[in-house]
Design a protein around this nucleic acid. Structure first.
Length: 369
DNA sequence: AAAACCCACAACCGCGATCGG
DNA sequence: GCCGATCGCGGTTGTGGGTTT
């Protein structure tokens, strides 16, 4: 079914807004508020659709909006949040008072994206182009990342639409979803408890300052005597919002330093460690959240999921094995064995695995936990 | 001077989610 | 529970002004 654009109905006006039209919108809002935009054109005497009126108000006429250029602090925050959560412009904009999602999106698309590209940083992955090229040869060795990506995506959405009684705003929800249980490998009850307690305390103190809360989580990590890379990095795009950490893939320990969010920053800060590839080969085994057991079925934190979905898992594995002639006991070996494949074949191989294993298991996870 | 190009940003489009009858 | 209306969001396009050739 072809959807008729709402503003095409009745041959409504669609070009730039005039000062006169803006004045009518302002008068309408002052009289009727912003609860019902459908009736706005008629009541305001405008030949626009309600949606167009709403956008004009939210993106331009709202009195709390800033119309000045973005500051370096705002720029920094946008980059860090984009690295952390991607193009969730509405959520990012909520961290920037007076800015709309449209503002942030336009600023990213016209300025920041190019700026990062010129620095040799891929604005999508926040990784150096050189590293992306280097990863080409390792693409078959991707550890399983379903838990992180799937949960993040779903929980982000949940947080964005969280009811008020649970979260006063989506920023709160976003911070809550970045709980240690997701950010960190479950290294033990002591660690988890201390992290949760501290994070909740942080949330109460600074419900709106997402970046501050993320940085506070970093401090908690320090206080817990765990190394930054070991605890967080393999599970999230941590380098994006914690850019001051100095890390070395060849070192077993990592020094973490905190910095004030208002301080100056280096573009190098926005380089992400590889979000998917462990720095050491043995970390492939340590990633652990979703690795394959000998039967090719997913395990979570060492607890087999077979009890929950053995039949389906076996079926999917057998189907996958029959299709792709798996060699060895896990898919990582199988992937590396396909090094002679073309790039496209390797990608298709990975996609099949995602569909056959990760996606089906993702569907089994309860939507709200 | 004028055409071509570039850039920033306003505005629109389409989709999914939510609401209310 | 169904369905149409509405809202909110991310992606995309259109437009006008500035710069370059």
């Amino acid at each position: 079914m072809v959807r008729i654009p709402s503003c095409d109905k009745l041959n409504l006006k669609r070009d730039l807004w005039t000062a006169e039209e803006d004045a009518k919108i302002l008068a309408y809002v002052s009289k009727h508020g912003t609860s019902n935009w459908t009736s706005a054109p008629k009541k305001a005497g405008l030949r626009r659709c309600g949606k167009s009126c709403r956008l004009r108000w939210t993106n331009y006429l709202r009195p709390d909006l800033k119309h000045q250029n973005f500051t370096s602090q705002e720029e920094e925050l946008i980059i860090r949040l984009h690295a952390a959560i991607g193009s969730r412009w509405a959520i990012i904009a909520q961290q920037l008072p007076g800015r709309t999602d449209n503002d942030v999106k336009n600023y990213w698309n016209t300025k920041l994206r190019r700026k990062l590209s010129e620095m040799g940083i891929d604005p999508v992955t926040h990784k150096p182009f050189s590293q992306i090229l280097a990863d080409y040869g390792n693409i078959g060795g991707l550890p399983r990342s379903t838990k992180r990506i799937g949960s993040l995506s779903r929980e982000l959405k949940t947080s964005a639409y969280m009811k008020p009684e649970h979260h006063s705003n989506s920023a709160q929800g976003l911070v809550d979803l970045l709980t240690p249980s997701m950010l960190l490998p479950e290294t033990g009850p002591v660690m988890d408890q201390s992290m949760n307690a501290n994070v909740h305390q942080v949330n109460n103190n600074h419900p709106l300052n997402l970046l501050a809360q993320l940085q506070a989580m970093q401090r908690v990590t320090e206080a817990s005597h765990c190394t930054f890379n070991e605890q967080i990095q393999p599970h999230f795009y941590t380098q994006s919002y914690l850019p001051s950490s100095s890390s070395s893939s060849s070192s077993s320990t990592t020094t973490v330093t905190c910095r004030n969010s208002s301080s100056t920053f280096s573009w190098q800060d926005f380089l992400l460690e590889d979000a998917f590839l462990p720095s050491e080969p043995q970390e492939l085994e340590n990633v652990g959240e979703f690795s394959l057991n000998q039967n090719g079925c997913q395990t979570e934190n060492g607890i087999s999921k077979e009890e929950l979905n053995k039949e389906r898992c076996d079926y999917q594995y057998n189907r996958f094995e029959a299709t792709h002639c798996l060699v060895g006991n896990n898919d990582i070996e199988a992937s590396s064995s396909s090094a002679e494949n073309t790039f496209i074949e390797t990608l298709l191989h990975q996609e099949d695995k995602i569909i056959l294993f990760d996606f089906l298991n993702l569907l089994e996870e309860p939507l709200y936990q």
